[in-house]
Design a protein around this nucleic acid. Structure first.
Length: 278
DNA sequence: CTTACGGCCTGTACGC
DNA sequence: TGCGTACAGGCCGTAA
């Protein structure tokens, strides 16, 4: 479910609600997530204080002092819920796999029906060496990602642009939705070979990737505030997509009379406009 | 090295 | 109502 903007939105929500919170205890579900919880995770976190909330690609990193860092990934269906004060009326749901109780009675619940998520620990100061994180490409919203890098990594690649951009080693944080959106905005066809991009294309593509993500974070952030105010839950924002999920409808590019199409690339839906994307 | 594909899980929507 | 099928915002291991 979550791509970079959603994970960033969740990060901000956690930082707002839990900075300085001391973990009273942790309850973990019987079966882990995509991989088992680390040994003695609950014991190791007892008494730790959440001091910082980071994001790298789609990974969340929570600093917990000497206990190190909680590494979390939401997979397809993962969700964090903050229950601010009193958990007495809260009942553990079928898919609540990790429940953090804080001094004062607040709760943080990790829910994940499909269990494609990850929750792990890394030693203090070593979250960047966590294997899955160490292998990630540049952060698309930072200076390390630009048209030149994109051009260099794309050169000689035969893979379709869609698969290329979904590869987290190339660029960290894009998923199915924002790849479709960024390619549409750049007017590039998803099935086009990555190696066919000229510098003028990568200029545009690097720029549309940054735009789409920035706009989505802005939308997510504002929605989050309202939602969090209502019941403490960290929700995903609703976004007006130009192509994602809009097959059969009119293309939104000004002056384009195309109809958005859906196709399947390596088992995943791709949405694009055959008229204005080349 | 790059690329393609199946598998992991459960829930939901839809057609018959 | 029930059943089967397709699909879902991700990632990893394997094989070619």
């Amino acid at each position: 479910m979550p791509e970079l903007p959603e994970v960033e939105t969740v990060r901000r929500g956690l930082a707002d609600g839990l900075s300085g919170a001391r973990i009273y205890d942790v309850m973990l579900g019987a079966h882990g997530l995509r991989k088992p919880f680390p040994a003695n995770m609950a014991d190791r976190l007892q008494g730790a204080v959440m001091t910082a909330f980071r994001r790298r690609g789609k990974y969340l990193i929570i600093d917990v002092g000497e206990a190190g860092h909680i590494i979390a990934h939401l997979g397809m269906s993962g969700r964090f819920t903050i229950l601010p004060a009193d958990g007495r009326n809260w009942n553990r749901g079928k898919h609540d796999h990790a429940v953090f109780r804080f001094d004062g009675g607040g709760l943080l619940v990790y829910t994940d029906p499909r269990r494609f998520g990850i929750m792990d620990l890394s030693p203090p100061g070593e979250w960047e060496q966590y294997p899955a994180i160490a292998g990630l490409g540049p952060e698309p919203l930072e200076d390390g990602f630009n048209a030149k890098i994109l051009y260099q990594t794309a050169s000689n690649r035969r893979t379709p642009l869609k698969s290329f951009l979904l590869d987290q080693k190339i660029i960290a944080g894009l998923g199915n939705i924002y790849v479709c959106e960024a390619l549409h905005r750049a007017r590039l066809l998803p099935q086009r070979q990555a190696g066919s991009l000229k510098p003028r294309h990568t200029e545009i593509l690097a720029s549309t990737i940054k735009q789409v993500l920035t706009e989505a974070i802005a939308a997510g952030g504002s929605t989050l505030k309202d939602y969090a105010h209502a019941d403490g839950e960290l929700g995903y924002f609703q976004h007006q997509f130009a192509v994602y999920g809009r097959d059969g409808q009119n293309c939104k590019t000004p002056g384009c009379n195309g109809i958005v199409e859906r196709m399947v690339q390596s088992g995943r839906s791709t949405f694009f406009c055959p008229s204005c994307q080349q």
